[in-house]
Amino acid sequence: MTCTRCAAPAAATDQFCEACGTALGAAPPGWLGSGWLSSGWPGSGWPGSGWLGSGAAGGRCAHCGADASVGGYCGECGRRRGAGRDRAALELPDVAALTDRGRRRHANEDAIAIGRTAAGAAAVVCDGVASSPRADVAAVAACEAALPAALRVLGDGGGAHRASEAAFDDASAAVHALADPAAADAPSCTYVSGIVTGDAVVVGWVGDSRAYWIPHTGAARCLTVDDARPDRPGAPLTRWLGGDAPDVGPRVVAVAVDGPGLLLLCTDGLSRYLDGPADLTGVAGSSPAAAAQTLVGRALAAGGVDNIAVALLAVPRRNPGGDVP
């Protein structure tokens, strides 16, 4: 795994980062990063539970192509290695996620995490705010704090709404902990989560990462409202996660669905290429993994000017309760 503060590599048994001293105990025991699936966390007592995180930094340096890393920095050119992977694909039953660096960025500042228990499935997607320092670390920290919190609440029978609130609280605390009191700016990210249980579909968010409902039949729709100023150039964010963020709570909504479909979470690396929700109907009826591949491929084909991250959760049945903002 990697340190969530400085992105230095660490062994799974390490308790503290050797580079900066940060505690490494936030991840569940035995977590090994991208591509690892547990049949049940040690000591959790949750049969059939598991989760996949956004993963440790890996691959070649995006700046010079070298594959050597010393303390989180490239051993050849000396630039800091990204906290996330250039590309990561995660899949569990009924939930999948995919992130890609895109065609123009040197590092991937988006992050993803997915998981499920017998009570339901959850996914988190975060987008590092590019104008903030260590934005990639903020996105990874938020995902890897939020997902375990959601699964714990679901496993304890707390329900989707409480799980969504707990996930946000832990994500916010993790990103706030990255702030340097002596610095003017703090690591920051946007955030969106989705939780699907047998009787609820719940979305929580802050910033401009979005959630969409894509029914097998019928019209797709956007479920979130961007926390941004569309009346100003560049649509600056009005809400985000970070030590310098306004004191905000999550927007949490229970979504009414009238049949099977897909709950899509995404960063603006995809949504910037959508003229509207109707552009998503092409993946209706697809598996979450197939839909993720299609949507990321579409963003790359359209130019891939930003990092891209998507997560999709299958909703197998009708849930009449809920509201959409």
Results as ranks from 00 to 15, higher is better:
Ala184Val: 14
Ala177Arg: 11
Ala177Ile: 11
Ala186Lys: 04
Ala173Val: 06
Ala182Phe: 01
Asp156Ser: 14
Asp185Thr: 12
Ala160Leu: 12
Pro181Phe: 02
Ala167Val: 01
Ala177Val: 08
Cys189Tyr: 01
His161Asp: 13
Gly157Lys: 12
Arg152Cys: 06
Arg152Ile: 09
His176Leu: 04
Ala150Thr: 01
Asp169Leu: 10
Asp180Cys: 09
Ala174Pro: 07
Ala173Asn: 05
Ser188Met: 06
Pro181Asp: 09
Asp156Lys: 10
Gly155Lys: 04
Ala186Trp: 03
Ala166Cys: 06
Ile195Cys: 10
Ala166Asp: 09
Asp185Arg: 15
His161Ser: 12
Leu151Cys: 03
Cys189Asn: 00
His176Gly: 03
Val196Arg: 14
His161Leu: 06
Leu154Thr: 03
Ala149Cys: 03
Ala179Glu: 12
Leu178His: 01
Arg152Glu: 13
Leu154Ala: 07
Ala171Phe: 01
Val192Ile: 09
Ser164Glu: 12
Ala200Trp: 05
Ala174Arg: 05
Arg162Phe: 00
Pro187Asn: 07
Ile195Ser: 09
Gly159Trp: 00
Ala166Met: 12
Ala160Val: 12
Cys189Ile: 02
Val201Ala: 11
His161Lys: 07
Leu151His: 01
Val153Gln: 09
Arg152Thr: 14
Ala200Met: 09
Ser164Tyr: 00
Gly157Ala: 09
Ala179Leu: 06
Asp199His: 14
Ala177Gln: 10
Asp156Glu: 15
Leu154Asp: 08
Leu151Thr: 02
Ala167Pro: 05
Phe168His: 11
Ala171Asn: 07
Glu165Thr: 14
His161Glu: 15
Cys189Leu: 05
Asp170Pro: 02
Val153Trp: 05
Asp180Thr: 09
Arg152Tyr: 06
Ala182Thr: 15
Asp185Tyr: 04
Ser193Trp: 00
Gly194Arg: 00
His176Cys: 12
Thr197Ser: 14
Ala150Gly: 14
Gly159Leu: 08
Ala173Thr: 02
Ala166Asn: 11
Leu151Asp: 01
Asp199Gln: 14
Ala174His: 03
Ala184Trp: 03
Cys189His: 00
Ala174Ile: 06
Asp185Ser: 13
Asp185Gly: 00
Arg152Pro: 04
Val175Thr: 09
Ala160Ser: 13
Gly198Ser: 15
Ala183Trp: 10
Phe168Gly: 00
Gly159Tyr: 02
Ala177Leu: 07
Val196His: 10
Cys189Gly: 02
Thr197Arg: 13
Ser164Cys: 13
Ala200Leu: 08
Ala174Thr: 05
His176Asn: 11
Ser164Trp: 04
Asp156Ala: 14
Gly155Thr: 08
Asp169Met: 07
Arg152Ala: 13
Gly194Lys: 02
Ala166Glu: 11
Gly159Thr: 11
Ala160Pro: 13
Val192His: 00
Ser188Leu: 02
Arg162Leu: 13
Val153Ala: 10
Ala184Arg: 14
Gly194Ile: 05
Val153Gly: 06
Ala173Arg: 11
